[in-house]
């Protein structure tokens, strides 16, 4: 009985705090969920030209986004992709056209590469190299001043990070093209 008397304070506090936590959860859960989704949707207009918002769909178990224009017509795909970088995982958003035949844009969601060197893969100088590239054959990384049709100019001093980003793009596009084709989602 003595223990119950001493424990009643803890129990009362637990109830009080539990109730306040439940209140906080109810009040904020939707906002947090919207924040998580917004992270991706906010990038869609920049990744696929003409798109104003996106719609999430499931293709072969992974979430991809249709890029829609103002009238709701699909103008492309936005695919989240991730893979091993030099230091840790790199997360990307790849913008593709409707046929997944050309890359429209690239955006780095998160990376933990070396600051000042590998982190330069987030800069538009590097990412612009992907725009307009065809996805028919895998891309490669080069250090030549004028890259060819299937080549991306690497960031100076960050060859491994640049190569990692390219590999992630290659692997995910190959996967996506086969998944979309098999799901008969590709439209002219």
């Amino acid at each position: 009985m003595k223990y119950l008397q001493q424990a009643w304070l803890v129990l009362a506090l637990a109830l009080l705090f539990g109730a306040s936590l439940a209140g906080v959860y109810v009040a904020l859960a939707d906002k947090i969920q919207a924040n998580k989704l917004d992270e991706t949707l906010r990038q869609i207009p920049a990744l696929v030209e003409g798109a104003s918002n996106g719609q999430a769909t499931e293709v072969a178990g992974r979430t991809v986004y249709r890029a829609l224009d103002a009238e709701g017509k699909q103008v492309g795909w936005v695919v989240p992709a991730s893979g091993q970088g030099f230091a840790d995982t790199i997360e990307l958003l790849i913008g593709l056209d409707c046929q997944a035949g050309n890359i429209k844009g690239l955006y780095v969601l998160s990376q933990k590469e070396t600051p000042g060197l590998g982190s330069k893969v987030t800069e538009s100088r590097f990412l612009q190299g992907f725009a307009g590239k065809s996805t028919d054959s895998p891309l490669s990384v080069t250090k030549a001043a004028s890259p060819g049709a299937g080549e991306i100019l690497a960031v100076t001093g960050a060859t491994v990070s640049s190569e990692s980003v390219t590999q992630i793009v290659n692997k995910n596009i190959t996967q996506l093209r086969s998944e979309l084709a098999s799901a008969a989602q590709l439209r002219p």
Binding site: V10, L13, F17, S20, L21, V24, L28, K31, I32, N35
Partner: peptide, 24 residues
């Protein structure tokens, strides 16, 4: 110590949720 820990953990959860909601 148990009571301190319970109190602090609750307020940290609240602070964490507020930050996730307003400065994601």
């Amino acid at each position: 110590i148990l009571v301190f820990t319970l109190t602090i953990a609750t307020f940290v959860t609240i602070a964490d949720r507020i930050l996730a909601a307003y400065v994601y």
